[in-house]
Design a protein around this nucleic acid. Structure first.
Length: 742
DNA sequence: CCCTTACCTTTTTTT
DNA sequence: AAGGTAAGGG
């Protein structure tokens, strides 16, 4: 017991030793928060609390996994519930399905599914093609759900025609979810929150089950999560919230910083512990980060301090282009490696995932090992989603969305016409698509089509006969009998990759059988709530590339924050005037703060003067954040080259005048040519374009060998006219084919 | 019905 | 740049 407390500082010790009653731990960046939470759990158990009575809620599965591991490492018996809000809710909703008026086997829709469904909802509500786009509608509805608002309430509060449309879309969307027997992420929280809000007996039951509630990253909880946590803790008030208002970076998805700011108002007798000693970063890093965050006006003052001395200055590097920036980062990484730093000790953070590409290319060329942490890349692969859709449909025959996805995947001759007829039939008789498929008749669809449709239904029926098998067996069964296996059997590179992905799904199923165990629907829930990030292990010997958001909670000896440019780091979507949601500069500043405070020893921030974004090369101004770091302990390195005027009017070869297309005057033309040349020099076009032009010999996968006659460089659909030795002249869209240059 | 081609939309971060 | 969708030809 003493061991647990001995290596803690005084406030940490108070937080760990606190037992009953509300506790708020305001933990500054790097102040040992995780350590406090895990110790606290251990301390509770050592003090006689049964592990089963402890509920620890985290924000990501990864954080939950880490916490379990650390607790186990301290030799504590397992049995505590440690997981994300969403996972807890999925579990509770299964347990209390009746109370929540849910059918067993409900599907959980991921973002992709949600947007698909939203598209349908907008269509059903007669709002298709209007100003309300699916993603905007989805965001608005998501926020409403997080505030526990029903469509009726949204409608009642509507202040404009646009709001009214959102309410209508919301109603239609919920109807569709219900028809599909599905929940989206927000529903998981919403339904659970409503249960807890409206059912005293459930509050009591769960309060007795979870006698100690711990919530990590409390600054990132939304209203629904607030209701859930407080509902469970209502009677015993054994609620421990940890977090840092300066690290609140999820307001955009409904997180409410007020939850943490008003904890003391919620619980007047709360014990408050402040952790302000930073054990992670050098003095320079901490000073720069503190300087930055001090520019936030809506903020409680806080002093982070460290007893560390020494360490290098924070570096701010200005570059010409995004590519040059990546190059500079690569060079610094190499230099650090030569100094003896492990690649795994370095990380590069960026605001948007799309920035990873230049970095990847550059690191790859420099032979620097790296790994990219991406959100849901794997589970979003088409072939992966297809396989999972089969399994979802098996568990939940009402899941029309999944059914629609796979009814003709792989192709089995059920086309658009047949599908819409079938949909009409299902709608008219009020049955699911799958059921309509099973009952398909010749006079509706034509004999051949009806037969194919029934064949699909029969296959699903047959697969459903094996639901009592292990999940791995079911997955393999689906893989083979659905025809996916055959469709992917060809030996080209793409199929090979897809096969590998599908096999990886089967592996996760096998792993599930071994480790967790449970029904197919258990497996599907787990898969739905997991992201690639969760499996992202500490990268042995490779540089980590991730978004600033994903970086939260991690630390690295050396950190690079790239893309510190106005509009990108204080991110702004400068689109038309109709823009409703102004971006929150203070949240962007907190995000930068989070990134900076991940660094232990070395921190480099960088920006580019020009960057290629969304297909266009645009000039960029340095982020205002860079000038907010203060001057002390910050070293600025300017790698930009002075812009010299170019006296060139014409240039043959690659551009062959195409760049000046649309020029109205000679001055226009000159300007465009100069810009294009500057772009090309900066960007180093990839080799396949650099040398491809008239006279080149190429090999086409289908048409064989040929000679390029003409290159029409018209982005994005650059075309080449090629005379093939065997089949004669063809126009090829380069985007659609991989030409081999000989 | 399927494949190819032309056009168009993109709104960042994540459970 | 890249993906999706809608329309057209086979």
């Amino acid at each position: 017991m003493l061991d647990i407390l001995s290596d803690l500082n005084e406030p940490q010790r108070r937080a760990v030793a606190h037992r009953d009653g509300p506790l708020l731990v305001l933990a500054g960046a790097g102040s040992g928060k995780t350590r406090v939470i895990t110790r606290r759990v251990v301390h509770l158990i050592a003090g006689g609390v049964a592990p089963q009575n402890i509920l620890a809620l985290t924000f990501t599965n990864k954080a939950a996994g880490e916490m379990s591991e650390r607790i186990a490492a301290l030799g504590t018996p397992r049995g505590a519930t440690i997981g994300t809000f969403h996972a807890l809710c999925a579990r509770l909703l299964r347990e209390f399905a009746t109370e929540a008026q849910l059918d067993a086997g409900y599907s959980i829709y991921d973002r992709d599914d949600q947007l698909r469904l939203m598209r349908q909802a907008l269509e059903a509500a007669g709002l298709k093609g209007g100003r309300l786009t699916p993603s905007v509608a989805h965001a608005r509805i998501s926020n409403a759900k997080n505030e526990l608002k029903t469509p009726t309430e949204v409608s009642a509060e509507a202040a404009s025609f646009g709001d009214e449309q959102v309410a209508e879309a919301y109603a239609a969307y919920q109807r569709l979810l219900r028809d599909n027997n599905a929940l989206d992420f927000d529903d998981l929280l919403l339904k659970t929150a409503l249960l807890l809000r409206d059912r005293p007996e459930l509050r009591r039951l769960l309060g007795e089950r979870y006698r100690y509630v711990l919530i990590d990253e409390y600054q990132d909880t939304n209203h629904a999560q607030y209701i859930i946590a407080h509902g469970i803790a209502l009677h015993h008030e054994n609620i421990c919230a940890t977090g840092d208002p300066d690290q609140s970076i999820y307001a955009w998805r409904g997180a409410n910083v007020r939850n943490i700011l008003e904890f003391e108002a919620d619980y007047p007798n709360a014990t408050v512990v402040r952790l302000e000693e930073n054990y992670r970063s050098t003095r320079a890093i901490l000073a720069a980060a503190s300087q930055l965050i001090s520019h936030n006006r809506r903020r409680k003052h806080k002093d982070l301090w460290t007893s560390r001395t020494g360490g290098a200055d924070v570096r701010v590097v200005h570059c010409d282009t995004g590519r040059a920036e990546a190059q500079a980062v690569a060079e610094r990484i190499e230099a650090a490696a030569r100094r003896g730093l492990d690649y795994g000790d370095m990380a590069v953070f960026y605001r948007v995932n799309s920035l990873s590409r230049v970095l990847e290319e550059t690191l790859f060329r420099a032979s620097i090992p790296y790994r990219v942490a991406r959100g849901v890349e794997f589970f979003n692969r088409r072939e992966v989603k297809d396989l999972l859709a089969y399994m979802k449909l098996l568990v939940n025959p009402a899941d029309d969305l999944s059914c629609r996805r796979i009814i003709n995947t792989p192709t089995r001759g059920i086309g658009h016409t047949t599908l819409s007829r079938l949909t009409a039939r299902a709608g008219a008789t009020g049955v699911s698509l799958l059921e309509a498929a099973a009952q398909a008749e010749s006079d509706d669809l034509g004999a051949a089509a009806a037969k194919r449709v029934r064949g699909f239904a029969e296959m699903m029926h047959a697969l459903a006969g094996n639901l009592n098998h292990s999940v791995r067996e079911i997955a393999e069964d689906v893989y083979r009998r659905s025809g996916i296996a055959e469709a992917l059997s060809a030996e080209d590179e793409e199929r090979r990759q897809q096969r590998a992905n599908v096999e990886e799904v089967i592996n996760t199923a096998a792993e599930f059988d071994e480790l967790a165990g449970g029904t197919l629907s258990d497996y599907l829930y787990q898969v739905s709530l997991v992201s690639d990030l969760d499996h992202f292990e500490g990268t042995g010997g490779a540089v980590t590339l991730m978004t600033l958001h994903a970086a939260k909670g991690l630390e690295f000896p050396a950190v690079f924050v790239v893309g510190c440019e106005d509009g990108l780091l204080p991110f702004r979507r400068d689109f038309g005037p109709s823009d409703a949601g102004e971006s929150d500069v203070e949240e962007e500043r907190r995000l930068t703060f989070v990134g900076m405070t991940r660094a232990k020893d070395e921190l480099t921030l960088s920006c580019a003067r020009r960057r290629r974004m969304r297909g266009q090369n645009k000039p960029c101004a340095a982020s205002c954040f860079l000038s907010e770091l203060g001057a002390e302990g910050v070293r600025i390195e300017d790698l930009t080259t002075p812009q010299r005027p170019l006296n060139v009017r014409h240039r043959g070869g690659f551009f062959s005048g195409e760049v000046a297309r649309g020029a109205q005057t000679a001055a226009d033309e000159e300007r465009m040519i100069i810009e294009a040349m500057a772009d090309e020099e900066a960007e180093q076009p990839p080799p396949e374009y650099q040398y491809l032009g008239p006279g080149c010999r190429v090999q086409h996968p289908k048409f064989g060998f040929g000679t390029v006659m003409h290159l029409q460089r018209r982005w994005p659909d650059t075309r080449a006219e090629i005379v093939f030795d065997d089949v004669g002249p063809k126009k090829i869209v380069l985007r659609h084919v991989e030409l081999e240059l000989l």
